[in-house]
């Protein structure tokens, strides 16, 4: 049976199930509108550790532990761990995997890591190569900000297009077996391509990612013969307020206007009073909203079919130092809730 739809999209005939999911939020994040959807919130961003990196590692491990426990899966049952973060050479994910002792594949898709790992995990389950997979992604303001931009204590003003790296982690547990009651499964996915609109400024990541996001959405609708109305919710990763507007304009120009059901995690993460300018970013931004809010709303029956799409700005400290442009990527995943009303 051919599960490919077009060059970019796949459908899952065995429908991997999301049995567990958990989101962890940092201090600033839990002061924002997403507070009630987090399974665990930090009281201090250092999380009792010595370095920010260790704190982020502990945070992603916490998300994985919580997702396993609310999915009633033991660590021993996990066949593969897929995950990533933003820090050089996947430092955070590697160290979390060292503690967890599971078969591990580290993934880097910048801020698109959550759906990237979800797609990889779903392929493992659908193909029968694993019966239980854990997908995770994290980001931390204090680790990412100094790697990609400036030290924390450095006095500077952020331009209005700047985004705030979310201190958050999200994890989902995929299983070939259905969850009792209302079940959420992954039914299709669209793997994006790298598009580089030529933006060089690290403070304009929304603009850098918007074309890739629009491309993935259009490809998805074309490959599956669907339109935006087929979804209760369409949520992009971390385009922020600026990128969201650009995406909506690009889509409208292509004749696929995005309606009320579309929003962006970066725009949702904080409210205006938190002074984050264009909104949130980082792997943890989309990971925590997908694993927290979306999964919970699906379990509650508020959402039947959701299109989630993490977006990544593929810059490195070297590329921005050398004045290279910032390529963008986006991967979309379809989640569907069924039964158990």
């Amino acid at each position: 049976m051919n599960n490919q739809r077009g060059k970019h999209s796949i459908v899952f005939s065995n429908r991997p199930n999301i049995v567990g999911a958990a989101a962890v939020g940092g201090v600033k994040e839990s002061q924002g509108p997403q507070k009630k959807w987090f399974d665990f919130t930090l009281e201090d961003d250092i999380f009792g550790e010595k370095t920010w990196e260790k704190a982020e590692g502990k945070m992603v491990k916490k998300a994985i532990d919580l997702a396993l426990s609310n999915g009633r899966v033991s660590e021993k049952q996990v066949d593969i761990l897929l995950g990533g973060d933003l820090i050089n050479q996947l430092m955070i994910a590697n160290y979390a995997a060292r503690d967890l002792q599971m078969p591990f594949l580290g993934l880097y898709g910048a801020c698109s890591t959550m759906t990237e790992s979800l797609i990889a995990g779903s392929v493992f389950i659908d193909g029968g190569y694993a019966s239980c997979a854990v997908c995770a992604a994290s980001s931390h303001y204090c680790t990412a900000e100094r790697q990609f931009r400036m030290p924390l204590e450095h006095g500077n003003q952020r331009p209005p297009s700047a985004q705030w790296t979310a201190t958050a982690a999200g994890s989902m547990v995929l299983s070939k077996d259905r969850a009792p009651g209302r079940n959420i499964c992954v039914t299709a996915a669209t793997i994006g391509r790298v598009l580089d609109p030529g933006i060089k400024d690290v403070n304009e990541m929304g603009a850098a990612m918007a074309p890739a996001a629009a491309d993935t959405l259009l490809t998805h609708f074309r490959d599956l013969g669907r339109s935006p109305e087929d979804y209760d919710v369409i949520l992009s990763g971390d385009l922020g307020h600026v990128g969201k507007k650009i995406l909506m304009d690009l889509m409208a120009k292509q004749g696929v206007p995005m309606a009320e059901n579309y929003n962006d995690c970066g725009a949702l993460m904080y409210d205006d009073s938190q002074d984050v300018h264009s909104g949130g970013s980082g792997c943890g931004c989309s990971a925590s909203i997908f694993a927290g809010r979306i999964i919970k709303e699906m379990r509650q029956g508020k959402i039947r079919r959701a299109l989630i799409m993490s977006t990544g700005a593929l810059l490195s400290t070297i590329s921005s130092g050398q004045g290279e442009t910032i390529p963008g990527i986006a991967h979309a995943v379809v989640l569907e809730a069924e039964g158990g009303e």
């Binding site: 598009l195 933006i199 074309p211 491309d215 259009l218 696929v256």
Partner: peptide, 26 residues
Amino acid sequence: SNDKKLPDIGTEQDPKVKKQKAKAYE
């Protein structure tokens, strides 16, 4: 939306055209 075109942003390979398009997009 089967026959909708994809936006032609960021796919350009020719460096000269790429630069012009980057400027226009900015």
